[in-house]
């Protein structure tokens, strides 16, 4: 019998393993519609839809001082927090695209290492919905990230 702990976990963003991930979680909930009618005593439902969200916490670090590096918290942060783009006089925005090569969404794989080549995993197309970075006395700078799946997960092997 095998149990899994944080030691067996990892997270891949756009195919690359992200370093210094402290935790990840995923939550999938199904919304229901009541089909209970008059004179019925007990609730009856049909499934209406499904929402899959999740979060992770990634420690912010630099392998080499002055070099942001890749496949770390910076990768997440730069998908959401962007400098405004050069544009017309009144354009002050920046693209909302988060995926590689200008695509809208990223690919996120939440993985459990079970000793096989691919391991156990849930892979989905996601939009990062929130990033919170907190600098505090006595704590390590980290990014708390929440994401939402676009559609059903692409691959589920768990």
């Amino acid at each position: 019998m095998s149990y899994y702990t944080g030691r067996h976990g990892s997270l891949l963003l756009d195919g690359n393993t992200i370093a210094q991930v402290q935790n990840w979680s995923v939550s999938s909930s199904v919304s229901l519609l009541s089909i209970k009618t008059l004179a019925e005593t007990d609730d009856r439902f049909i499934a209406d839809g499904r929402t899959t969200t999740g979060s992770c916490r990634v420690l912010y670090y630099q392998e080499t001082p002055g070099v942001k590096g890749s496949n770390n918290a910076s990768t997440f942060i730069n998908k959401v927090i962007k400098a405004r783009e050069v544009g017309g006089d009144f354009y002050q925005g920046a693209t909302l695209a988060q995926g590689p090569n200008g695509t809208n969404r990223s690919s996120l794989r939440l993985k459990i290492d079970d000793g096989t080549d691919d391991g156990l995993y849930i892979e989905m197309r996601v939009i990062i919905t929130n990033i919170t970075m907190t600098m505090a006395v006595g704590e390590v700078l980290a990014a708390d990230i929440t994401f939402q799946s676009h559609g059903a997960p692409q691959f589920v092997n768990i």
Partner: peptide, 11 residues
């Protein structure tokens, strides 16, 4: 005091 920096996959 110490801050825990253990991450996924660490033993």
């Amino acid at each position: 005091e110490s801050v825990d920096t253990t991450v996924l996959s660490d033993n």
